[in-house]
Amino acid sequence: MSEHVDTSRRRFIGGTAGAAAGMSIAPGVFLNQVAQAKPADQPVTSENRWGMLIDTNKCGDGCDACVRGCMEENGWGDINDSEPHSAPEQKAQWIRIVELRDTRTGYAHQLPLMCQHCKHPPCVDVCPTGASMKRADGIVLVDKHICIGCRYCMMACPYKARSFIHEDLQDQLVVAPRGKGTVESCTLCVHRVDRDGADAVPACAEACAAEGHDAFVFGDLNDPNSEISRQLALHGGTEIRADLGLDLGVRYRGI
């Protein structure tokens, strides 16, 4: 290893374990803290299962900050003018606001809907090539290298979470490769999760918090001490179409 610590690396470390660096005295504490964010060369494991809890009561009326946050982070949607030729019904939507109105009581509210990162994902079951896949840590992704664009996963997803790309794209963002003829969906900001581990904040959650609504909690469903697990233990959470038994990574409160 080099003798000096060069600044870029300091910055890199600062992003993940810098806070720990300030307070630690004993090396052991470090090891724990470092283990939080997975080292870049280590594979993800099934020790974690990443998920989100969304409190729809906190979801602001008419607010779509999370949607815009996702667009900015991942480069899709109108604010990036990413698919200029496609008709509105053809454009990708990784996350959308769904407005609900109870037909009996008239009670109306809204919630953000995206890939639910199912534990038993139908999209993965039906994909002929294995392009639809679930990582060991529960994040469901499309491996666009081997996606043939058959769209069977879109037929199978109960949440309409996936989009097909209908035209050539250019200048995609580095964190979110995407292109013509393949299918895509919410990645749970996997690039952030790989970098920050349990401290990760997906772009939607970040944008929501910045707006002051704080409706999202991201975290490890396998860790009973994580914020998300504690909140679920305390108040419970609903899965959309729980009757399908897919064991979703995204849970809601208030629906």
Binding site: V5, S8, I13, A17, S24, P27, L31, V34, P39, A40
Partner: peptide, 23 residues
Amino acid sequence: KGHHFTETETELTADVLRAATEE
């Protein structure tokens, strides 16, 4: 080496330790 290193856990820990010591 620039950023072209393969960061193993031990290396990272060693680095963090060094950073901490410096600080």
